[in-house]
Structures are given as structure tokens and as C-alpha cells.
Amino acid sequence: MQRYFIDHPSATDRFSIVGEDAKHISKVMRMSVGDQIIVVNNGNAYRTEIDSLEDRVVHVKTIAAIPFSNELPVHVTIACGLPKGDKLELITQKATELGVSEIIPFQAERSIVKWEPSKSTKKLERLNRIAKEAAEQSHRTVIPTIQNVQSFGSLLNREGNDHHLFFAYEEQAKRTDRTSFSEHLRTIDFGQSIFIAFGPEGGFSPNEAQQFIAAGFKPIALGPRILRTETAPLYVLSAISYQFE
């Protein structure tokens, strides 16, 4: 059943779907009055039936609330050093499917690309659209938050209540006495939050690693192999899903 997110509150058992989603329902899916869809509003999912539809607005009425959630039982934020090409789009799509809560792109020492302020808004709009579509496809009730690109310093001084701070460091993978990521996961409880930083192509510099450690982050190895910058976040999210789901 098709799923659509709406971002406006409703005090009744009726919702209105507008804009591109309404057009998708009427023109692409060619739905009609009486067809059913799932509407997600403020983290809650509802099975609804179409009351009326036009090109730019579709009105639906609630049939029943959907009581269960498909969200990860832990809150996961990933911070990604700006990678080349469209890798951040791939990370956004797949990480959303795997249950990430927040994605923060940041400028690392070894990031080759830079986000020009004039293009930042369009890039964020595209990433948010990718996250929304992936959340609908994977039947989530929450669309991940995509932050604007941050500096490395702002990453270290992040405000919040993250319970566990990690950074993926390839030098850690070379150690024979390394602690496996699964061992770290066993120290985490349901409902807690996890913050994990990943470097761009080339990984983190020794200077960045030292600053992470000084700020309370733990270095983690993702197995004995060195993963690509777009693979590492997906490895981590898969491991978290296996541990907690």
C-alpha cells in the first residue's frame, strides 16, 4: 500500500495531501475515490481511504491507526565527511532504508569537494527528497533529518545528549588488539542514542583522530577490511539493526 508523509497537523480523522504527492496519487498511481493509502503524520501511521481527489489536493479519511512502528529502537546519527560525486545521495537513500535518524555532512581535512553556499539549498532539498522517498518505500514513520554541511569543529562541539560517540578509523582496523564493533554495541541499551562519524575518501587524518579522542569519541574498526566511504555507514547501520532488531 502506498505511503505518504504529511507535515501539517490535523485534529480530526481526515487529512489533506497536497502538491507533488497529490499529483503522484492522481496522475501517476491513477487512484480513485475509495482506494486506500497509508498517511504518516507526526510519527503516526494511519490506513486511510480517498474521499476526493484533484491534481493538487487529495482528501482522505482515517479507517484505522497502525499501532506498530518500523523504527530502530535506538537513535542513530551518522556524520559523513563530504564524499565525491553522488555518494552522499546513495548514503542518504540506503541509510534511510536502514533506519538512520539523522545525517550530518561535514567538511573533513581530506574532503576533496566543497559545498558552495549558493548551491547548498538545492543540494539539501535533493537530499531531503531522497530521504522522504526512501522513508516511504521502506515503510518508516519518520523521515531522517538532513543537516546542512558543518565544519569539523562544530561536529566536535555538537550539542545534544548522545549516549555513545564513535568514529570509524582505518588505523584501528589494523590493530590486532582492536575491540570489535559488536562488543561496543553490547554496551548500548534500547532507547539510547549513537553518534558515528565517517571520513571521506582517504579517511580521517591523524590530527582529526586525536581531536575525536580528546572530545570523547571512541575509534572503531569495521572488521579487518577497509571499506569505502559510502559502504561504511551502511555496514554500521546493518550491524545495529542486527543487534537490536
Rank of each mutant, 00 (worst) to 15 (best):
T12H: 13
L124A: 08
N70P: 00
E54H: 11
H8M: 01
T231F: 07
N148M: 04
I38V: 14
Q210F: 10
S26Y: 12
V149S: 03
H75D: 06
F198H: 02
F204M: 06
G43V: 05
V149W: 06
K132G: 00
P200Y: 05
F217R: 08
F212P: 11
K119G: 13
L155Q: 09
A134M: 05
Q211D: 12
D177W: 12
T179V: 14
D51M: 10
T96M: 03
I17Y: 05
F15L: 10
I37G: 05
P233V: 09
K218I: 09
D86A: 08
A215E: 04
K174F: 13
I91T: 08
R47S: 09
Y46G: 02
T176W: 04
N157F: 07
E109M: 06
K132E: 13
S118V: 11
P9E: 14
V236S: 11
S69H: 12
Y242L: 13
R3C: 04
I50V: 11
A65E: 15
R110K: 14
T179S: 12
V33F: 10
P67S: 08
D177I: 07
E208M: 03
H75A: 07
Y242V: 00
Q147K: 12
T229C: 08
I104F: 06
E183Y: 09
A173P: 03
P105D: 02
T231A: 14
F106K: 00
A11L: 11
R129Q: 09
Q211H: 15
F68N: 13
P233M: 06
P83K: 02
A209T: 07
T145M: 05
E116T: 14
Q2R: 14
K122D: 11
H139T: 13
I50A: 02
S151M: 07
A135K: 04
S32L: 01
D21W: 08
G153H: 15
R228H: 10
L53P: 04
L234V: 01
G99L: 04
I130K: 06
V113W: 12
V18D: 15
Q36G: 09
G19F: 05
Y46I: 01
K61S: 15
F68Q: 13
T141I: 09
E71T: 04
W115Y: 06
F15M: 01
E159N: 14
P200W: 03
P67G: 04
I66Y: 12
Y169R: 11
L237H: 05
Y4I: 15
Q172Y: 11
P9L: 09
E109G: 03
S238Y: 08
I220F: 06
G216Q: 00
E136R: 05
P117L: 08
R225M: 04
P73W: 03
S120N: 12
F190P: 00
L234D: 00
F181A: 08
I66C: 08
G19N: 12
Q107P: 02
Y242I: 07
E245T: 03
T145Q: 09
T176N: 15
G43T: 10
I6A: 15
P233W: 03
L227V: 04
